[in-house]
Design a protein around this nucleic acid. Structure first.
Length: 285
DNA sequence: CAAAGCTCCTGACCGC
DNA sequence: TGCGGTCAGGAGCTTT
């Protein structure tokens, strides 16, 4: 599933290709993804130049400019969304069943594909860009200097619920999804059912470091896969990572070995994977 | 306001 | 081979 590292990888892959390219047109094949596409707004984008590609949490932002005017396309890949880059100089694949929206640039086509339609693509112009509602709700960027141990500790002290749910909450930390939350909690040896506010500060430091390390490693792994994506199906957004705990139920724990098996439970309507022996449960009194 | 529960969607997978 | 059932999850909404 596309979480922060996958979106960062997509950003790195498409940015050098579409930067400074002029957008000829936007093709909309399916009017109703998660939210209906604003057809007139996308039509207005014609002739704009791509000026930047950035990321905030799991949200990909493609900036455009046309003389003094600005525009920004927001892409959220949801669960099954992906972006596919087609080089116009080479034979292009036929449009697929789930290609919902296509950006036609001078030399490339950027196709938004999403079988489950949990994602969305939206556009805003000029002064409305900074006030995009989804952006307003996002919490701290975990790979920025603002994400400190003190900041994380303060956030967690205010929460009474499970640490798992807190880390998934995009208004606290932007970009973590189910997989990397499982991995970070395993690395920090914290049980996913621990109460956020009961985790001691020394342990919060381990969690902070685990979050940064897990994300950085995944980005490094995705980045190295970029070289190969053209040899596969050209799809951007999905890369195989080596998980230590996610989806490993029944396996032997790689930390403690022996006969301690990885267990699974459901939290916040999502699967959690953990080792009962390694990951300590902190509960408020 | 926090937190829990439900909903959207369809491809992949499993058992028979 | 086919068919029905189950599972996967991000974010928004509703309820408590």
């Amino acid at each position: 599933m596309p979480e922060l590292p996958e979106v960062e990888t997509v950003k790195a892959a498409i940015a050098p290709k579409i930067m400074h390219q002029q957008l000829q047109q936007v093709k909309i094949f399916r009017p109703d993804c998660r939210y209906a596409f604003d057809k007139p707004a996308f039509k207005q984008l014609s002739n704009y130049y791509c000026s930047n590609v950035t990321r905030r949490g799991k949200l990909l932002m493609i900036s455009f400019a046309q003389q003094a005017q600005q525009a920004c396309v927001f892409v959220h890949l949801g669960m099954s969304g992906s972006l596919q880059l087609q080089d116009k100089k080479q034979a292009m694949q036929a449009y697929g069943k789930h290609d919902h929206l296509v950006f036609c640039f001078d030399s490339y086509e950027l196709r938004y594909n999403d079988p489950r339609r949990f994602g969305w693509v939206d556009v805003r112009f000029d002064e409305h860009i900074a006030y995009y509602p989804f952006l307003q709700k996002l919490g701290v960027e975990p790979l920025s200097a603002d994400f400190t141990v003190a900041h994380l500790y303060t956030l967690l002290q205010k929460r009474k619920g499970d640490i798992k749910a807190a880390l998934l909450d995009q208004s606290l930390i932007a970009g973590l999804g189910n997989i990397y939350v499982c991995e970070a909690l395993f690395m920090a040896k914290i049980h996913p059912k621990s109460s956020s506010c009961a985790i001691p500060k020394a342990k919060v430091k381990l969690l902070h470091d685990a979050i940064v390390k897990v994300l950085a490693r995944a980005i490094a792994a995705g980045g190295s896969s970029i070289k190969d994506f053209k040899h596969s199906d050209g799809k951007l957004g999905y890369f195989q990572h080596q998980f230590q705990i996610y989806a490993k139920q029944g396996d032997i724990c790689i930390h403690c070995g022996g006969n301690q098996h990885v267990e699974k439970c459901i939290q916040a309507a999502r699967s959690s994977f953990y080792c009962k022996k390694c990951q300590k449960l902190y509960k408020s009194p």
